[in-house]
């Protein structure tokens, strides 16, 4: 560690003078885009899948949709996200002749991947809501769909928010593999700095600190949301 000052100096030089900071900012931006848009997509699709999975299966259509959902969840939970990225970018998209930028592919794949996890989280959330809530809605003449979306899902979301926050945090961390398909995230930025200064210690340490800060911020955000959603529990 004797030459730590020197290493820091080298890092600083590349970071400031050779446009390293711009790369880091782009990387940070991409990481956040993939994690946030991916989670939003995941929540949207995941909620849909969860609703399909808890809908009573008297008729044929719900049965088919349910089987598809089970298959989907199995597929996306059964393979690592790196494999999904590689398959999507190098196999699936060329096969159907679509050319998308790496970042967009990453957002979609992360969205689809997190949908599989969110659907299971959401399903347990929906099942944790008192069945009486659904009954009361139906007894008033509201449809299954309206009662689900206005009454049951909001309460389910409140129950699962901590778990959903966890999913967001792991999503942020998992974005560090997007360089496999050439998307520029934080890792790419700090790797650039490292390989230009022939010195990786400081860049990787800084990268770790940035991840920690990001996740601390995310955790704080989740806490705030939890608190505002707990409003209906408080006695006042």
């Amino acid at each position: 560690m004797g030459n730590f000052d020197k290493k820091l100096e080298k890092f600083w030089e590349i970071f400031i003078e050779h446009g390293g900071y711009a790369k880091v900012l782009t990387g940070l931006q991409n990481t956040l885009i993939i994690a946030i848009v991916g989670l939003a997509l995941g929540i949207l699709i995941g909620t849909l899948i969860a609703i399909i999975r808890v809908t009573p299966q008297y008729r044929r259509l719900p049965k088919i949709l349910n089987a598809l959902s089970v298959f989907y969840v199995g597929l996306f939970r059964g393979t690592p996200i790196v494999v999904q990225l590689l398959l999507a970018y190098y196999v699936f998209l060329p096969l159907i002749g679509v050319n998308l930028p790496a970042l967009q592919v990453c957002v979609i794949v992360f969205g689809l991947n997190s949908a599989a996890y969110v659907s299971e989280i959401m399903r347990s959330g929906i099942l944790s809501v008192d069945p009486g809530q659904m009954e009361a809605g139906r007894a008033l003449g509201l449809s299954y769909r309206v009662t689900m979306l206005k009454i049951v899902v909001p309460q389910a979301v409140k129950n699962i928010l901590p778990t959903l926050g966890n999913e967001f945090i792991s999503l942020i961390k998992e974005t560090s593999v997007v360089s496999f398909v050439g998307a520029a995230d934080l890792y790419v930025a700090f790797n650039y700095i490292g390989s230009n200064s022939y010195e990786f210690m400081v860049p990787y340490l800084v990268m770790a600190v940035i991840y920690i800060v990001l996740i601390a911020l995310a955790a704080m955000l989740i806490k705030l949301m939890e608190r505002s959603l707990r409003r209906s529990d408080r006695r006042h």
């Binding site: 809530q133 009361a136 809605g137 139906r138 007894a139 008033l140 003449g141 009454i151 209906s232």
Partner: peptide
């Protein structure tokens, strides 16, 4: 069902409203 009101043993008020 709109024309048949129902009242439950456990009230079942919507907790989020």
């Amino acid at each position: 069902r709109r024309r048949m009101g129902m009242v439950f043993q456990h009230f079942n008020l919507f907790n989020n409203k």
